[in-house]
Amino acid sequence: MSDVASREYELTGAETGAAEAVSFASVSDYIALLKPRVMSLVVFTALVGIVRAPADVHPVIAFTALLCIAIGAGASGALNMWWDADIDALMTRTRARPVPAGRVTPREALAFGMTLSVGSVIVLGLLVNVLAAALLAFTIFFYAVVYTMWLKRSTPQNIVIGGAAGAFPPMVGWAAASGGIGLESVLLFLIIFFWTPPHFWALALYKSGDYARAGVPMLPVVAGASETRRQILLYTLILVPLAISPFALGMAGLAYGTVSILSGSIMLALAVQVYRRREGAMADAAAKRLFAFSILYLFLLFAVLLIETVQSPTWLGL
């Protein structure tokens, strides 16, 4: 055995008795358990919820709320990795994650996820407000139990219903700032909720082999690529007008209206491309383009809402 291989074996420790007694994880492994990229989207959308809420909130309280929401989201990611380690090991996209790679034991991931879940909810409840804490607790429960443990392996509608977990953060942020739930926070929830299926199914279209190998009943695996393309188009047809509605209802300004119409048109055009190009490299390329643009699309919508709010004289106290 080479030095490198020998060291990796020692560090993995999965087959040694020491694995249970000594942790082999580095700090970066624990950070990876928090799914930092997902967390960054959660923080961003929650920030928009805090800023858009019709209430004055002290910056320190807003920061505390954001921190708790971020930690809560990370905790649910850790619980997801604990539960899904078996299927993560079978998929190219996920097999390098800390638990399937053997750098973190399942027990460590579970303890880490539970500690952060309970801690983030309690701190949010004590330092900010109880409604926000209750919503955060529900979000963690929904992602870790309803989506991860139940829906993911049992229905092709897994990411449709499970998408609600990713859609809650702006509502939690809104509740943290205002102590209530407004119509606009529901709209923000719905935008992310209807954005999730086209986003994930675009990914699933060109990663369907991965999901099939792991036995995850994603829509392309169960219903086929053709039906998935149709569903992507249908959800995009609902999503685009929904994303324009804050402008149409007078909740957002002209900048948001312009961006939501333009970027929505691109999103729709890409969804049509995915629907029409069904075979070969062109089909994969179309799905990859839609997946990549969907991230930019959601970012643009929320970024413009944020900029419009922080630039308004009312928000600046002028």
């Binding site: 000594v22 942790s23 082999f24 994880a25 700090v27 624990y30």
Partner: peptide, 9 residues
């Protein structure tokens, strides 16, 4: 290496 990781944790 394991000691270094424990220390960083």
């Amino acid at each position: 290496e394991q000691k270094r990781r424990r220390r960083s944790r």
